[in-house]
Design a protein around this nucleic acid. Structure first.
Lengths: 164, 164
DNA sequence: TATTGTTATACTCTATAACTATA
DNA sequence: TATAGTTATAGAGTATAACAATA
């Protein structure tokens, strides 16, 4: 006999609400990012990561893959499009010639400065009416959810088909 | 002189953290949904909406567009793929012959029953270690964030380019 | 041999505009 | 004329496997 509690209908319902909202919020974020800032959310994250002081000398391709949690193949595609628009540049690593360092081009830096104001406005509107405590709580709960989801495996969770 | 407070570096930073996490969580949700449940998040939402008791007699295409907050063109594509897989069916409305009612097929209902168990397992893992209060708080903060984002306009927020 | 990143391919989703058929 | 959905087209992101260059 274990202490495991069978989920009640209510906890299932609140989970449903949480994850449906997460789905919607993720979608809205993508849509608004594209229409209001002119970049997709992935591009936003890439440019943001490259814009920091620590990344002045470039970020390793592999580090970016880990940080953004996208596959290397997909990041390659995203970077190619950003390179096409002259916002980003890849240079071969000096010590390890297999590795690549990713940089913001001058155009990319200028572009980032322009959208950063927009990002701030976006934040203001999104988070309007949130108390400082609520922001901190949200960040904390996101962090917690993130940890759980990151640790989840990739096994199919669906029940096998009835054979007939 | 207004009461408006210029955002400090800290509030900008916490906003950054919140939205970067939202971006990551949205991505992980999509990835895990596909790999662990065998459906994309949009498909999950569609099937879930169609599976409820109230939708037994179908949901109007337009109502689904509003509920899911995707464009009609995009929902059409999602439904076409679900129809191709024989999970969903569209019937012309009786009163208004322009409208369409969307249904789960028997196969679709069976499929939903199979993945529902997986969804429950997914919820358990994701939300492990959350107190009841934390779940309620998260749902509440999501709702609040959703309201703000939904009301946001579609205007470009980026500063105009310096002419030269 | 193992690792870093790229190429190739196919599919899902998204954005936009123009269109058909009903009303 | 207006509304409900559809078609058409282009682009971005994602999943998977196979590959080249370098270690």
């Amino acid at each position: 006999m274990t202490n495991k509690i069978k989920p009640t209908a209510e906890t299932y319902e609140i989970n449903n609400r949480i994850f449906f909202r997460l789905f919607q919020l993720g979608n809205i974020l993508q849509t608004k990012s594209t229409s209001n800032l002119g970049v997709t959310t992935v591009q936003w994250s890439v440019l943001g990561a490259l814009s920091t002081e620590e990344s002045k000398n470039g970020i390793h391709f592999g580090a970016l893959v880990e940080y953004l949690m996208v596959s290397k193949q997909n990041l390659d595609g995203v970077l190619s499009r950003l390179e096409r628009d002259d916002l980003v540049e890849r240079k071969t690593g000096k010590h390890d010639r297999r590795s690549k360092l990713v940089f913001l081009t001058p155009t990319g830096r200028e572009y980032w400065n322009r959208i950063e104001t927009g990002i701030d406005a976006f934040y203001q509107e999104s988070i309007a009416g949130f108390s400082v405590n609520e922001r901190i709580t949200l960040a904390y709960l996101f962090q917690k959810l993130h940890t759980n989801l990151k640790e989840m495996g990739d096994e199919l969770l669906i029940a096998p088909l009835d054979p007939d």
